[in-house]
């Protein structure tokens, strides 16, 4: 089959499992950005397992696959956990994250691992690459869709708006940007460090169809993605309002978790909280 479509209950369970995977990966690696992964768990769960993306894990570069590009490359552990659960590679490989010789690099490197579409980690680049894929569909006359997940702080990069302008200019309706709007960047609240608001108006001004959603509500995400697939005359963006560190109370409460893994002890507590979700 193309992709995977699980029930609502299964999706919720899987989201919990993915959080646990990310926690274990980053704790074992003693580094990484777990809180940036946690805010995007439901978004990726719905895309990969809610019947939105069409893909074949055993033919990862199938020409007509839908593309997912993780522009906020620091959420790589989540992408790897999702790809493993989707069957792109064995789950045991997750524990090699960030170790010598492993293709599970700290930030994604294109094509060294099945399902990893782009090299990202220097922020701002994914939407342009996604636009390239979207334009290729038009040139080849095939009909896949391209989804690009951006961080909120990442939208401070000028290249994001270069790409947005061009996507709108070329009227690529098969391109959807998703912003994981968790309201925090590396050094503090986005609104304090470099405000993005009025954010919706910016995307609208650039010619995008804009939809906002609670980025942790699986049903709402399913509905939103279904609605965006019906937009035929312009690119679209889903502004997903999320919580950084979602699922672990003491991580949610402290943005300084951005660039670090949890200690063994913190991870134990986090695990208990995630299991109660």
């Amino acid at each position: 089959m193309e992709g995977m479509r699980l029930s609502l209950c299964e999706l919720k369970n899987l989201a919990r499992e993915l959080r646990l995977d990310v926690l274990e990966m980053t704790t074992r690696a003693k580094s990484g950005h777990p809180s940036s992964c946690f805010s995007a768990v439901e978004i990726l769960t719905v895309l990969y397992f809610g019947g939105i993306l069409r893909y074949h894990p055993d033919d990862p570069w199938w020409e007509e696959r839908d593309r997912f590009i993780l522009s906020k490359g620091h959420a790589a552990p989540l992408l790897y956990a999702v790809l493993a659960r989707a069957g792109f590679f064995p789950r045991e490989r997750l524990w090699t994250l960030r170790s010598l010789g492993s293709p599970l690099q700290g930030h994604p490197v294109a094509r060294i691992l099945p399902g990893v579409e782009a090299t990202t980690g220097s922020l701002g680049q994914g939407l342009s690459v996604g636009l390239g894929h979207a334009l290729a569909a038009r040139l080849r006359n095939v009909s896949y869709r391209v989804y690009v997940l951006l961080g909120d702080g990442e939208c401070q990069e000028g290249q994001v708006w270069e790409a947005a302008m061009a996507a709108s200019h070329f009227r690529v309706s098969n391109l959807t940007a998703i912003v994981d709007y968790n309201k925090f960047q590396e050094t503090g609240p986005v609104a304090r460090e470099m405000n993005l608001e009025p954010f919706r108006a910016k995307w609208e001004a650039f010619g995008f169809y804009v939809q906002e959603v609670d980025g942790h509500n699986i049903e709402a995400l399913l509905e939103a993605f279904a609605a965006l697939q019906k937009v035929v005359d312009r690119p679209s963006v889903l502004i997903a309002h999320t919580v950084k560190g979602k699922g672990v109370s003491f991580v949610e409460a402290d943005y300084t978790f951005h660039g670090r893994a949890l200690t063994e002890e913190e991870a134990k507590k986090a695990r208990e909280e995630i299991l109660c979700l």
């Binding site: 782009a118 342009s128 690459v129 636009l131 390239g132 334009l135």
Partner: peptide, 9 residues
């Protein structure tokens, strides 16, 4: 960036 996407297609 657009060139990179096209190249991968």
């Amino acid at each position: 960036g657009v060139a990179v996407g096209l190249a991968f297609c």
